[in-house]
Amino acid sequence: MSFTVLAINPGSTSTKVAIYDGEVLRFEEEIRHSHDELREFQTILDQLPFRKEVIIRTLRSKEFQLSELDAIVGRGGLLRPLKGGTYKVTEKMKADLRMGVSGQHASNLGGLIAAELGEGYEIPIYIVDPVVVDELESVARISGHKNYEKMSIFHALNHKATARKVARELNKTYETSRFIIAHLGGGISVAAHMNGLAIDVNNALGGEGPFSPERAGTLPLSAFLDACFDQKHSKDELNKQLIGEGGVVSYLGTTDMREVEQMIASGDEYAALIFDAMALQVSKEIASLSVHFGGNLDAIILTGGLARSASFVSKVSERTNFISKVIVSPGEDEMKALNEGAQRILVGEESAREY
């Protein structure tokens, strides 16, 4: 039986919309939002009517009726920590999304828009694997000081979807697999996945792990503390050093790794150094997580946009293939992952979780 699902993914400067019939994509649209359009709204929540109307217009242009739907699934936002899976959008969840209980981001609108579009149609509304998925082992939460507990914030949607895909290719299930997965994008998250749970991962928004095209990762703490108190930088400026203006862009002035590879090809030795340093840090993060598995690891998986770079993949693979075989699954199809999460519930493969 084929179920028709609307997937919604609000990003900081775009809204993606897709219709699936089972696993078949009927159509997908990415609506870009200009700075002038978005600056009219004081808060993320204020954007909700605007983004909802954009989606309605897009569906009308495709002559699609909401009455055709069996379910709607939205990108999960910054909720309270939860286990991975597909969740029903409930009143409690909507209240936390409106409040921004764990922070403000456009993804908070995913479940809210989905719920409003579904009103009156008596169809289920879901979110899937938001970035706040937290399945850390207790021992992995210990930071080094009792006042600070490690948090799990990572690219859970792509991690989990890629894990399921590779597990099928290996004739296994995600729940019986043992992977280290590195999501390589604007932010980088590396996680140990054991038997269907991400038991250890760097906080990709919390100044941990490898540096990335736009994030600093783990910095020398003493030097950063000095910067916090030297009265030369505001808190906002320091936050930007961690996220947005850290990593590759702080060294080379660009977040586009294709440009970096062009610099290297033209003989820029400094660009080559930074490129190799990021690959080294990713490799070290993978190696550090390998201690969870005692040599019993099914695969190291490289995914995300940067996994399309043959040079970067080669550098990481050469440093880590002694641990386990390296499988490359480039890109991140978030819309497909959202649909798959909803379809698993609709076909009875899984049960929807309660928030």
Rank of each mutant, 00 (worst) to 15 (best):
G185L: 09
G100A: 03
D96Y: 12
S309P: 08
F64S: 06
G331V: 04
L66R: 08
T320N: 06
D96N: 13
A272R: 09
V316P: 03
V313H: 06
E318N: 14
V73F: 12
F3H: 14
G341A: 13
K172G: 04
D333F: 04
R32N: 14
E91I: 01
L78A: 12
A114N: 03
A342G: 08
A140H: 06
S283N: 08
Q104F: 08
T4P: 02
S317C: 05
E91S: 15
V328K: 12
A7K: 07
R141E: 13
I323T: 04
F154L: 05
A167I: 13
R353G: 08
K165E: 14
L338H: 07
E332P: 08
A337H: 03
D46I: 01
V24I: 14
M263N: 11
E269C: 01
G295H: 05
V5K: 06
I72W: 12
I56M: 14
L136A: 09
H159R: 09
R60S: 15
G187I: 11
A204T: 05
E119T: 14
S290R: 05
D129K: 10
T15K: 06
Y87D: 11
A71P: 11
K240S: 10
S324N: 13
L79R: 00
A182S: 13
L59H: 13
A114Y: 12
R39K: 15
A7F: 03
N203H: 11
G11A: 08
L184R: 02
E340H: 12
A279K: 01
M1N: 11
G118N: 06
I125Y: 08
H159Y: 05
P330D: 10
G11T: 10
I199Y: 03
Q281H: 12
S152N: 05
V190P: 09
N9H: 12
E214F: 01
V248E: 09
F50H: 15
G207D: 09
L219W: 10
L82P: 00
E269H: 03
H183G: 09
T218I: 10
I127R: 05
E175P: 05
S351H: 13
G244Q: 02
K92Y: 04
G304A: 11
L157K: 10
A156H: 02
P130H: 07
E261H: 02
E137T: 03
V316W: 09
S250V: 03
R26M: 12
R353S: 13
S152W: 01
G22S: 09
V249P: 03
I142C: 08
A182R: 02
S67A: 15
G100M: 06
Y148G: 00
N9P: 07
G186M: 02
L252G: 11
A163L: 06
R26P: 00
D134V: 09
P213R: 11
R308K: 15
M99R: 15
A156Y: 00
R51P: 05
E28K: 15
R215L: 04
A191S: 15
K92D: 15
E334K: 09
F224L: 13
E245H: 12
N296K: 14
G110L: 10
I188K: 02
E340F: 12
L6C: 07
I345S: 09
